[in-house]
Design a protein around this nucleic acid. Sequence first.
DNA 1: CGAATATAGATGATGTGACAACTAGTTCGG
DNA 2: CCGAACTAGTTGTCACATCATCTATATTCG
Lengths: 160, 160
Amino acid sequence: MNDTEPSAVPWLSADEQRAWRAFVRVHLKLSARMAADLQSHSGLSSADFEVLVAVTDVSEGRVRFQDLAKDLDWEQSRLSHQIRRMIKRDLVAREECEEDGRGAYVAISEHGRAVIEAAAPRHVRVVRRLVLDGLTAEEFAELGRLSAKLSDQIDRVETA
Amino acid sequence: MNDTEPSAVPWLSADEQRAWRAFVRVHLKLSARMAADLQSHSGLSSADFEVLVAVTDVSEGRVRFQDLAKDLDWEQSRLSHQIRRMIKRDLVAREECEEDGRGAYVAISEHGRAVIEAAAPRHVRVVRRLVLDGLTAEEFAELGRLSAKLSDQIDRVETA
DNA sequence: CGAATATAGATGATGTGACAACTAGTTCGG
DNA sequence: CCGAACTAGTTGTCACATCATCTATATTCG
């Protein structure tokens, strides 16, 4: 496994590989756990939850598709499919846009607001138990800092 | 962000929230980027890639479904569907199991081996450019350490 | 042995996500 | 104002994930 040839691309060292795998794994585990908890206790998928949070985040209680897609960093078509499904469950409603005939708003429904308000406290509790309680405040801050740095790096680098 | 209704939902402190969001976001970005790169340059999905890596990782070039599912931490049915699709594309083959009439092996195909060997170097390059190059060695090691610690925490905590 | 039970894996239904093609409304250059 | 280019959002298709259910073989135990 000691491939010290001067090839164009050095493989990862054992330590690097361990770190990389741990990094990948923790996200998979975490998102699986949180999604399962959310689903079983609130009947919401992670996607549902994200949408509801984003829509309730604005005071008007409704957002243009465009803006919502940008907030969530989702493709428009994904959002469109997602909203269609959420409308069927009366979590949000679609409202026509007066200023632009092409446009539309996604608006929180009464039921949707009730659901997200019921779900949020538990969600926070789960985040605390799974993540914050496992690290010191300094470690968690450092994790955030490294994540942000990495995020910038990813935005900066072209891979095409 | 506008906070017209602050009290209904106990959220995280502003710093905690920033860290948490950065942590979640970086995973989403990273997996999206890597999946897109893999797909466009090798014609493989992340799932395909994982399977091929796992199968070529063993010297025999074939693994029992059970063991593979365990390695990948996948549900059996997910693996079954995935392998069916991969067989259709001649990336792997199914081999009967002599010792256990119920069992089966997933075996790497010639074509599958060629594909994964062609894909791997670029994959490593992308990991380096997106992740390793953005952090110092110490930072990366710390990220790995924190990830592992978090992973343990997640395994330890019940959320049911 | 032979019935109950456990195990390996497959399958069908359903919901989700990415991508490309599409429709309809808007803007802009002439 | 008219048509070309642009923009907002929708839709179809296929890959993927989960769940419940199903088949066939193995094992266990009376």
